[in-house]
Amino acid sequence: MDLLNAIVALLNFVVIPATAYGAQLALGALGVTLIYGILRFSNFAHGDTMAFGTAMVILFTWLFQSMGIHLGPLPTALLALPFGIAATAALVLGTDRAVYRFYRKQKAAPVILVIVSMGVMFVMNGVTRFIIGVGEIRFDDGARFVINAGEFKKSTGLAEGLAFRSTQALTIVTAILVVAALFWFLNRTRTGKSMRAYSDNEDLALLSGISPEKVVAVTWTISAALAVIAGTLYGLDKSFKAFNYFQLLLPIFASAIVGGLGSPLGAIAGGFVVAFSEVSITYAWKKVATYVLPESLAPDGLMQLLSTDYKFAVSFAILIIVLLFKPTGLFKGKSV
């Protein structure tokens, strides 16, 4: 029995990757939940907004790299982030003007807006692939590791290595900062409060002098910013592939619904619930079990509940379980 090695293995293969992934999902789910709470429909184009935004960030990263601008140990993408957000916000606001506003004027039923957002999704999907291509792109530069597995083994003398990549550290730190800023904005500023008022009661907000068009524009901008940040962090942590973001839509929606649609706090909790379930169910526990259990009980198999190919099934399963037993999500959402 070797508890220390077991803990290190657990941290290395489950806790750290799941925390980083959870932070990415949480940021994505926040954008979805904001649109749902304020514009009252599920935005299926969110995944492809992430893809488009990340593509923009990559283009700006390449531009800065060609100009010889670097951020030292931090990835250059961080510098490109504001430009990517600006480009994506412009696209999203343009889409709102050209597409969604028409349906808003008609007071279209929310389910119609969902279908409209699907159309937008396909267009954005195509545009993104047209601009940046369909292949896999790695765009992280700067320092690779905060904690290196080899050095960790050498300095601690443990059999297990612990790797903490800088992109993972960056993801977690950025997510905390962004979430704190968002909550401050929604709860403390006049514009943020007017967004919550509009979400609660559109007519009363209008009669209180809150301009609906302004609320809508600010909401789109924030959700675009969240999408670009989440997409870029995901791309830095893994790699960029336009189609991956389309697939990411499912765990993102699962996170938002698990937490309670319309509840920002729920989106964060949901992101981590989904990420930890996904990682721990698809992880082969043999190594950790071998360390913890007595030798006679050591497992022969991999102790992997599901192959990683099925990781999206986990999101689906969680989604269905939550909808069956707690339709409003973990935090009281607005879905009922």
């Binding site: 749902y36 709470g37 009252r40 429909f41 599920s42 007071k107 039923a109 929310p110 389910v111 807006l113 969902v114 009661n201 559109e202 007519d203 907000a205 209008l206 609906p212 619904i257 649609l261 319309g262 909808l323 339709p327 607005k334 879905s335």
Partner: peptide, 8 residues
């Protein structure tokens, strides 16, 4: 789970 009532 995909739409929300209560539009003004």
């Amino acid at each position: 789970s995909i739409t929300r009532e209560g539009k003004g």
